[in-house]
Write a protein that binds this DNA or RNA. Structure first.
Lengths: 143, 143
DNA sequence: CTGTTTGCAAATGATTTGCATCCTA
DNA sequence: TAGGATGCAAATCATTTGCAAACAG
């Protein structure tokens, strides 16, 4: 699943929603699909300096990418982070409250539990976010 | 665990931190401990109308209550909700993206998994938040 | 008394919105 | 060519901060 494949999925999503495939959207999506880490809307905007893209458009496009299921948004203290999701295993996050480092872990059993819970409540799941806050190994040493 | 007991714990916390026990802090804490539901800082401020309490003080006091472990803060889309934690079983949340209703569930197995993960990463947990977004039973009927 | 805490008002900062113009389809 | 998409700038809105006055210990 490389950048081109992801872009194609995005285009297919736009078509399915009868939305326009524009240069701006492709430019933003490409930068997102090239990302290796978590980033916020400002980061992305800075990385796209050069082409004159408005912050508003960044937000609008990130929203589209989330709806398309290609990007995940996670709410942290006072800011939202995004990450490419497509072509990556499902995972959750450990966030260090001291240095801010984000570690990822996979724990399929949790997903199973959530499926049970949803069924019990007759709740139709769309997404979830699990964030564990604490101290990473480094910050336990140097507090 | 009633309001008085909770207030006492708060006072004990303040003393342990060498912070003042003020009328304003007690007033806010009391209102928090009386709450039955999730609320945001604005809600709380509105409920305290009458005594002239500044929003800034609400935020500062909520922060203290969280540090004291008596209140939990949860990050939702574009806003933070708080809930009284003391004297209640640990639980996670289902949030309906349509009507906003918040359902709670207990799932101790998830906590166990997180303990394992933390050990594996040598990560010292402080707190976590798990929010499942989706459609509640009602909103599946009337979309 | 002396350092904290508070109210007030102003500052912040991320995100959203209104709108004229531009660009897909 | 028509209606959606974009850039721009202004508007929002929750939260934070600076500071003089009020208060707890």
């Amino acid at each position: 699943m490389d950048v081109q494949d992801s872009l194609e999925l995005f285009q297919r999503y736009l078509q399915s929603q009868k939305q326009h495939i524009t240069q701006t959207r492709l430019k933003i999506a490409e930068e997102v699909f090239k990302s290796q880490n978590h980033f916020d809307a400002q980061d992305l905007w800075r990385r796209l300096e050069g082409p004159r893209i408005a912050p508003a458009t960044i937000y609008r496009t990130l929203d589209l990418l989330c709806r398309a299921g290609l990007v995940r948004r996670m709410e942290l203290e006072n800011r939202a982070l995004y990450e490419r999701v497509i072509g990556r295993p499902r995972h959750e996050h450990l966030v260090c409250v001291n240095c801010g480092v984000i570690l990822e872990f996979e724990e399929p059993l949790i997903e199973d539990r959530l499926a049970d819970v949803a069924e019990r409540f007759q709740f139709r799941r769309i997404s979830h976010q699990l964030v564990v806050s604490g101290l990473c190994p480094d910050c336990q040493q140097n507090p």
